[in-house]
Design a protein around this nucleic acid. Sequence first.
DNA 1: GACCTGCTGCGGATTG
Length: 925
Amino acid sequence: MSGAFEKLARPVQKWIRAQGWRELRDIQSRAIGAICDGQGDLILAAATAGGKTEAAFLPLISQVLEAPAAEPGFDLLYIGPLKALITDQARRLEDICAESGLPVVPWHGDVAASVKARALKAPRGILLITPESLEALFVRRGLEIPRLFGATRSVVLDELHSILDSERGVQVRSLLTRLEQATGQSLRRIGLSATLGDMGLARRYLRPDAPETVTLIAASGGEAELRLQLRGYLSGAEDETGPSATDAIAAHLFDHLRGSDNLVFAGARQSVEIYADRLRARCEEARLPQEFYPHHASLSREHRDFVETRLKDRSKPTTAICTSTLELGIDIGDVTCVAQIGAPFSVAALRQRLGRSGRRAGQPAILRQYSVETRLTPQSGLVDRLRLGLVRAVAMIELLLAGWCEPPRADQLHLSMLVHQVLSVIAGQGGASASQLYRLLCKEGPFRQVSAPLFMDVLRAIGRAEVGLIEQAANGLLLLGPRGEKLVAHYGFYAVFPTPEEYRLMSAGRDLGTIPLDNILAPGMMLIFSGRRWSVRDIDTGAKIIVVEPAKGGVPPRFGGEPGLIHDRVIEKMREIYAGDQTPVYMDRTAAELLSEARSHYHSAGFGRSAIVNIGPRNWFLATGCGTVKTATLALALQGVGHQVERHDGFLEVTCGTDAPPLEKTLARWAEGAAVDFFAAGPNLVFEPYHPYLDGDLLRTDARSSRLDADALPGLCARLLEDFVSSPVEAGTFRAPSGAIPPLPDAEYRFVALDVETANGDCASICQIGLACVRPDGTIDSWSSYIDPEAPFAPFNTQLHGIGPAKVRGAPRFLDVIARLEPLLRRHVIFQHSGFDRRAISGALALAGVSEPDWRWQDSVRIARCAWPEFRGKGGHGLAHLKDRLGLDFAHHDAAEDARAAALVVLKAEQRLGCAFDDILRMRR
DNA sequence: GACCTGCTGCGGATTG
């Protein structure tokens, strides 16, 4: 054993020997050195189950044992984000402390009141507590805080990354400041974490005044080999031959996970229920024992405990289909494989999840990523074509492999949380002055972004008579107002995140879990829940209880929830992936095909050249290149001036309002820094529990700090326009041909017929132009050229005419072709069959910003109607029917061939009626 | 179409 071992107290050494450890882990030795020899704060970073808890507590317990505190009070404080984690850690620490008799006190909502009463009477040893329970101590026993924590030397913050920049993290930081202020001494802070994106920010979080004094100890090596597969699936209109994407994934999971312990992260609770149901059914069909179980926050504690225990039990193979419930630190041992269905919201989460697998020496970590994309139809929009989910999954995997993950977000005001802490401090102390609150919470605590005037605005807002959270006594002291009293008195006060109202589901007196109140249910309706099928027997709206009984079918309830924020770096990576041409080796064939398809749509939409793409007369698609916050900022700004905006990962789909100023001009003004009203469209600003007590100005200020990035808007607009201006779509001038244009017919003709094919539903997306030029002797010179439509191909169109991205690669662009055709077209009457081709040409010219030449268009359908009136209502005068009835020989849906057909129709009509086409047209008038 | 996390004190009934 090393020198580190010698630094530990006897009973601790004895415990280590009893474990049969041959030596201390690297992180443990280093942590023991740092804790025993130094004074400063510490961050211990190691993969889950990397021995972090012991690394921190072995030396901390040793210090307590060797120099017991003279005064009563807890010696060590541990703050953990989960009750289950606290229960688990308390068990491990009790084992270490058994020999020395140092008490270990777990403290959360499920801990018996008697245990708490005993600890309050004689506070000693290690207190393990949730942020909420600590908050409750401050509120209910504010005056006892110095007695309880006067002897506390160190505080251990577990799962530091999970509370880094959340509301709850702010609450923890505020509680720590209040603790130090109440006891009059500084606490050594020790953070434990597996996943920290930015160590600088983590240090600042732990010790804002002196981040440079925080020592970082990261576990070295020990990274398991990673095995990775990304499988692609298509959902939507199922073909009769194949199973649905869900069934196909369930089948794959069943075949590959059965017989071992695994975690399947399915994204949403609803999706968890569906996969759990499918997998249960497969086990039943195969007459195999059940080993797939759902696990999410709405399931009863009893069920979740059952699944967690089964996962720990190595003798029974168990796969949990779960949400992020099983992502955090609860020790469930090692799993063989981690599956992820759909892309997660953060690389940090993906890394954390993957850390569950490959923890035993020699075992690889296995990640199976499943991506489900929509089967495309002619109506599919660009969003579906871009395969955003799949590309995001690839981006996240690539960033994971590169060792990157999201840093915490700094600089948010957290005004709702500030209101909460103001109430908590006043309640705990019985009153506080404004200046004391400001010093405690804003100058020393976590609300450093809040200026003194802003703080006063907050106090004034919550002190308004109609709000009544606080009021001021004659001596200036701030007290709780009537509503403040009521809020603080309710036990719901301690938690800082919003909670929805829910029904409780019961079957035969057993609690199954909860579902949100907004599910519309009636007796007899069928439900999938907790991995089983139920029918609703009875609904007690008063008690909010739904009684169910087993049934044969059903659908899972809706659970709701807000989407996660996607970081700028992830969107940047997605852009790199679209622009690149490498296919990652870990993709299966379908996934690789989907990626290649996504790239093709990305390029044919024009994103390779321009960040702004026109997809309709008033419709634009913007590639913002930024994550959720900046993209939402631009979206709100655009909505504010009257545009309709749909948001996607790094993209905005804009439908220009009829009264709104032109998109380009608006962006240009913002790029120059013009003032923007982000709230003109009246977006919802109430997200957090204490938002309803603030006034409009404060809500807007808070939203600006947390949901928007107004400072980024000018740069973002400038970047969008930069690409846009250089885009040929807007250039409006003919440019040098990028592809060869076939030699044009060169004679004098009686007339020409023209036909176009288009890439998608937008008639301006011309991908082929064909001409049939009719000589005076009736012979026809045909000509056609492919055209790069600079727009995505719709499968419907491609199926019709057989033209896709491959055929138009390197083809000239519309303007180049039309420039060459112009002299010929100008000289002749141009026939098109119906009005489509003329509209297409006009549309494409308008899109390119070129005014329409004064050509002599005519319509061969009109000619046909005169010549064959009997077809009216009997097959009509479409080319396909005319081909049949007139015995025309041409290959339909090729531009040159269709143009020739139109010409033939004119010639045949002239024959039948015995006069020239201009006479026929005059007859009609 | 979209994650998760947490919770006190008291009065009354029941049990030993």
